[in-house]
Design a protein around this nucleic acid. Structure first.
Length: 596
RNA sequence: GGGGCGGUAGCUCAAUUGGUUAGAGUACCGGCUUGUCACGCCGGUGGUUGCGGGUUCGAUUCCCGUCCGCCUCGCCA
């Protein structure tokens, strides 16, 4: 076999005159007739044009070159020269070509169902791309994404090991724990009737590594949550998981900010500047979401007191609502220029759409030269001046309202804010807005379960100044949690953990675990906390999402080599699949559904 | 679990109100072509219209069910 000397994409004028061997896939071939054949050969690095001058090569090369087809795998030996037909500016190698002297066809291909040609590929159904992933991944775009992902994981290892983190592996077969997402479970052959779970994250193990004196830990690990996927979510995903001892949240945030600073600097030569902080309450009030996109305005204003002075029934009803000690609200978004840009059709669609978030609709008013018009203008007439002042209304603006329980109104306007920004093209290109969200509540009340549930997870510590109200007013207690948000998407989340056994016990009690249940489920953690647990905290980056931002895609499957579909299937391997009865018998498992 | 969109040639799509032999581009096959680069020209092969049922003289088209894919609500500590 001819031995490769260069990568296709690496050929440059400096190679002219050299004898080289390229290996790769036939990207395209152009048969010019009896004398001349062109072939663009592709490998991971790019394309190079190979010329077969049929009068200058041995008969077997003539025959083999005439039989070349797209995606055949070949090795070619030849001399690099300046292109005789003039340069091709579309190719990085476009100034040179390889004049073939030898050709070895390493593997003929069947007619490929799809081609890794960018011109074609953008149009091909993802279903087909996933089935023939081995061809789809040959595309330059996909190769580039895989390379970028590799760069990110290497940057993480470099940065964190440089800062004293040890890379330590944690088990995949673990104990199933309550709380959180649904577990994937694995039958334990040696323990009939018992099961392992696959980790939703290495959370408890990394905490125990801190108790074990490892000081700083990093792992790039798979996490598995048996929940329905989304465009930016897979059941099986990857985290850059970290934990540090003897720190408070400030040091964790500084360390992590340093990482993204280095990453963005090395990949984009972009200075992320000072990363802003925002409290969870501020985020919810002003942006209607716990991961605000601060690249544009459209902030939410509370106009409850003004609305209270109107006779508009929807406002009155909303303000009369109350839940968990919080009154209903009327809130509004001023849309600059919205009087013209937001058509009746659009605002009607918004009203319909917010119903999916349990809101009743979106009252609208527009500001024209004549004053407030359309929509609910007549109800607002008495408070016109106040409203204009509060919202800073100018002629040409529109106002979108939500009136409901505070969380419903927040959610509706938060979603609406993003949709309006998208539809009115208000999101600036090329901006990277990083933001730390802090001071999350420890708990939220679960109406169905009639109990408090941890907003982050039950190992999250209250903020140091909040211990006093942990038990007396859990609903008001703020945690030492922090999320790193990029352009409205959560890319990392973590917290300072509880390192005292008595505090952990209290939190378990608060979320409805009795001492005995806590003992059964988390006895090892409570033990660890008893025997010398240092203060510690950490964070986990969602690697897939981080890479999505970096490569500019909104499809998580683009950044995973072998992703799963929305129903958890792998279209290439056809997993999940049936197993033999014998396997089930050995595992002491019986299926309750007939095998298809 | 709920809602929405989609599935026609290897691939991307079309097919009028339910009506002739389901078409086009591309890929593939054959021929021509010595400077192309999404090469070009001529010709050809290629169909379980996702699957199952129903209505009808007649179904890609209408109805029911089902499978698959995508988006989304719930869910994702």
């Amino acid at each position: 076999m001819l031995k490769r000397t260069h990568l296709c994409g690496s050929l440059r004028p400096s190679h002219v005159g050299q004898s080289v061997v390229l290996c790769g896939w036939v990207n395209t071939y152009r048969d010019q007739g009896r004398g001349l054949i062109f072939c663009d050969l592709r490998d991971r690095e790019g394309l190079a044009q190979v010329v077969f001058d049929l009068e200058q090569v041995p008969p077997e090369v003539v025959e083999a070159s005439r039989g070349l087809r797209r995606e055949d795998v070949i090795a070619v030996k030849g001399i690099v020269r300046v292109r005789a037909g003039g340069p091709n500016p579309k190719l990085a190698t476009g100034e040179v070509e390889l004049v073939a002297t030898e050709l070895e066809v390493l593997n003929k291909t069947d007619n490929p169902p799809i081609l890794p040609d960018e011109y074609e590929a953008e149009k091909i159904n993802e279903e087909i791309r996933l089935k023939y992933r081995f061809i789809d991944l040959r595309r330059p775009r996909m190769q580039s994404i895989l390379a970028t992902r590799s760069k990110v994981t290497k940057a993480a290892r470099d940065y964190f090991t440089k800062n004293g983190f040890l890379e330590i592996e944690t088990p995949l077969l673990i104990r199933s724990t309550p709380e959180g997402a649904r577990d994937f479970i694995v039958p334990a052959r040696l323990h009939p009737g018992k099961w392992y779970a696959l980790p939703q994250s290495p959370q408890l193990f990394k905490q125990i590594l801190m108790v074990a004196g490892c000081d700083r830990y990093i792992q790039i690990c798979k996490c598995l949550r048996d929940e329905d996927p989304r465009a930016d979510r897979q059941a099986e995903f990857t985290q850059i998981d970290l934990e540090m001892s003897f720190v408070e949240r400030e040091e964790v945030m500084q360390m992590m900010t340093g990482f993204v600073r280095e990453l963005w600097s090395s990949i984009f030569s972009y200075d992320i500047g000072t990363v802003q902080r925002m409290t969870w309450q501020h985020a919810m009030d002003r942006y209607g979401i716990d991961r605000p996109d601060t690249r544009y305005g459209l902030e939410i204003e509370d106009v409850s007191d003004i609305a209270a002075k109107t006779e508009f029934g929807v406002f009155k009803e909303a303000l009369a609502k109350s839940r968990h000690g919080r009154n209903g609200v009327v809130r509004a978004i001023r849309v600059p220029g919205g009087a013209e840009k937001l058509t009746r059709k659009m605002t009607d669609a918004y009203s319909e759409w917010v119903k999916t978030f349990k809101a009743g609709g979106v009252p609208v008013v527009k500001m024209t030269e004549k004053g407030l018009e359309t929509g609910i203008a007549k109800f607002l007439e008495p408070v016109k001046a106040e409203l204009i002042a509060k919202l800073g209304l100018q002629v040409g603006d529109a106002v979108l309202f939500a009136a409901d329980h505070w969380d419903v109104a927040a959610k509706a306007l938060g979603e609406l804010r993003q949709r309006v920004a998208r539809e009115l093209n208000m999101i600036p290109e090329g901006k990277w807005n990083f933001l730390w969200v802090v001071d999350f509540p420890m708990f939220e009340y679960d109406d169905e379960g009639k109990r408090w549930v941890a907003l982050h997870h039950p190992f999250t510590s209250p903020n140091p100044d909040q211990f006093g109200i942990l038990e007396s007013d859990p609903g008001a207690c703020l945690s030492a949690g922090y999320d790193l948000v990029l352009n409205g998407s959560e890319i990392a989340g973590g917290s300072i953990r509880i390192h005292r056994q008595d505090v952990q016990q209290k939190v378990f009690n608060l979320i409805g675990l009795t001492d005995e249940q806590a003992r059964i489920k988390f006895g090892f953690l409570l033990d660890a906390l008893k025997f010398g647990a240092p203060p510690h905290g950490g964070i986990a980056f969602g690697l897939d999402r981080l890479v999505m931002h970096i490569v500019g895609t909104d499809n998580i499957r683009d950044v995973i080599a072998f992703p799963k579909t929305q129903s958890g299937g792998d279209l290439m391997t056809e997993a999940p699949g049936p197993v033999d009865d014998a396997q089930l018998v050995e595992l002491n498992v019986r299926s309750t559904v007939p095998v298809v």
